[in-house]
């Protein structure tokens, strides 16, 4: 049973003097059509990567009387999975992330992006990001975050592959969504959750950091390329029940960000009760200047 704590830290209230506007960059995303093909109601079906008794992707319908579920034969291909995103055609992009064990998630396979065909549901390897690691004793993780950008037709990926307790060697990639080609990278940054948005009509990428509780942002140009280095704009340090959550997911809301804070210390977890908390952060709490 997953336990999720909601913490509304600050009310979404912005005075006129500090008015800012934020717009999500995910309006073009579509859901895949394959749930219907597999006999699911497309209004209530959900894709899950966190089913306790099975690894991989699972199609579930929580609204159905017997909590109907389905697993395509290819959906265990990558072992346990982390997050996912869609594109404008309903293609699902996902990545492996070890949870309890490494049997189905060997460290060398944690920098591979997978794609699920929106119509037939077949999952396949898409892109192998570089493996810049020699040893995995201290870090068995690779990709930790992914987001699709509608304005630049890019996919942004965060990977901590190769990092250790003393060295931050992760990378942020901008990929061409059509070809998977690496367009840009940010070096030496262990990113976690990602989200692109337009803030005061300027595009930027929000980035959680997997080593600290800090939220960063980096401006993007019209092609979605990074302009400069990430800048720290907020921190969850001292907030929530644990006080040092890492930012696993970022959702752009009308007046701020909804952040999923998660207990993460570069080790595995034998429990399925996720230690995570939702934080609502208004725009005027972000140190953008």
């Amino acid at each position: 049973m997953k336990k999720i704590i909601f913490v509304i830290l600050f009310l979404f209230s912005i005075s006129s003097s500090d008015a800012q506007s934020i717009r999500s960059d995910q309006d073009c995303l579509r859901h895949p059509s394959f749930p219907k093909k597999f006999g699911f109601d497309s209004q209530t079906a959900m894709l899950s990567t966190a089913e306790i008794h099975d690894r991989g992707l699972t199609l579930i319908d929580p609204a159905s009387p017997q909590k109907k579920s389905y697993k395509h034969p290819t959906w265990r291909l990558a072992g346990s999975l982390g997050g996912m995103t869609f594109d404008e055609k309903g293609t699902v992009y996902t990545f492996p992330a070890p949870h309890v064990e490494l049997t189905f998630n060997p460290p060398t396979a944690q920098n591979i992006l997978y794609k699920v065909n929106p119509e037939n549901g077949i999952m396949s390897q898409w892109i192998n990001l570089p493996i810049n690691a020699k040893a995995f004793d201290q870090n068995v993780f690779g990709i930790l975050g992914i987001t699709f950008s509608c304005f630049s037709k890019s996919i942004y990926v965060s990977s901590v592959m190769g990092s250790s307790r003393t060295k931050e060697l992760g990378k942020i990639y901008q990929l061409n969504a059509e070809t998977g080609a690496i367009l840009n990278t940010i070096e030496n940054f262990d990113g976690f959750g990602l989200a692109t948005a337009s803030l005061n009509n300027k595009w930027l990428l929000f980035l959680g950091n997997a080593r600290t509780s800090d939220l960063y942002s980096v401006p993007l140009n019209d092609q979605g390329a990074f302009i400069g280095k990430p800048k720290r704009i907020f921190s969850l340090i001292g907030l929530g029940p644990r006080g040092d959550d890492k930012i696993k997911k970022i959702i752009i809301k009308e007046q701020g960000l909804q952040i999923t804070g998660f207990e993460f210390n570069f080790n595995l977890s034998a429990t399925w009760e996720l230690q995570q908390t939702f934080y609502q952060i208004p725009l005027n709490k972000l140190h953008m200047n």
């Binding site: 309890v100 064990e101 490494l102 210390n265 080790n267 977890s269 034998a270």
Partner: peptide
């Protein structure tokens, strides 16, 4: 599950 035991941070352990 296959639980590995070991160091509490930056490790391959699930039970710490």
């Amino acid at each position: 599950y296959s639980d590995a035991v070991g160091c509490p941070v930056f490790s391959q352990a699930a039970v710490l």
